[in-house]
Amino acid sequence: MFDQIIGNLSVLTAAPIFAVDLLFQGLFIGAIFALAGYGLALVWGVMNVKNLAQGDLVILGGYIAFQLAAWGVHPVVALPIAFVVMFAFGWGIYVLIIRRVVERDLFTSLLATFGLSLLIQQTLNRIYGPEVQVVESGLGSREFADGLMIVPDVRILSLVLASVLAAGIIVFMRYSRMGQAIRATSQDARAARVLGIDTDRVYAFTYALNSAICGATGVLVALIWVIQPFYGIVYSIRAFIIVTAAGLGNLPGVIFTGFGLGIAEKYSDFVLGSEFAIAAVVLFLVFVLIWRQIQMYRVRQVVR
């Protein structure tokens, strides 16, 4: 165990190019998780709905890309299509289900979104079967440092797409009327209503936007990893970890946390072994929570 860790570390010091490689891999996976986390932070922060179907929305987006690829649509084109389709889907889900649980207690919304998660899983399983599926982009790989570091183009593409998406959403939230209304509603829903904001519409838009972000994320997941009707839970859990670590209401923080966790995961995967990759991420979360407790303690003392 320990000699293996030392061996792995010596590989990194002997050939630092691998450390660079890991850094990029961390950024690539971080981008994907950051997007799923961002959507969850939005829904959680604005509507106080803990969306357990988050990962299943991601997988649903993946299957949209899969279906479009079967019809001959290139995945880069599939991404905006999935975004729009999932936006409409999210709006529909809000009207049908979420609207009825927004004002209720925690468990009602947990149960409702859990049920939604099961429904999506089994429907996808009915239509596409339980096989693992992928979408091929047909793009090659780039070589650096005499082939020691190889970066697949599809990952660069997904990083770019994820960045564009994230930047677009941040700008939208800051400057558009709807973005302002969403932020106002998340601060104080009742006050927002008094000032003439149609909070129901804001909620619907927020959930639809989250669903669209998830859909786009799903396209990227199908492009660089694999999709299967029951794999959504991975993205749900990761999104919850990211939002918890970033802190509720800290939307830009979610993006940084996503990248940070991605990089932490890759390095611990390499050095400690894959069995500790997820453990390292959760450990990271624990440290963040402890650190935040200490901070809060200081604040409480000042108040006292």
Partner: peptide, 9 residues
């Protein structure tokens, strides 16, 4: 890990 989707490391 069962929920690991990436093997690049």
């Amino acid at each position: 890990p069962r929920d690991l989707s990436d093997m690049t490391a």
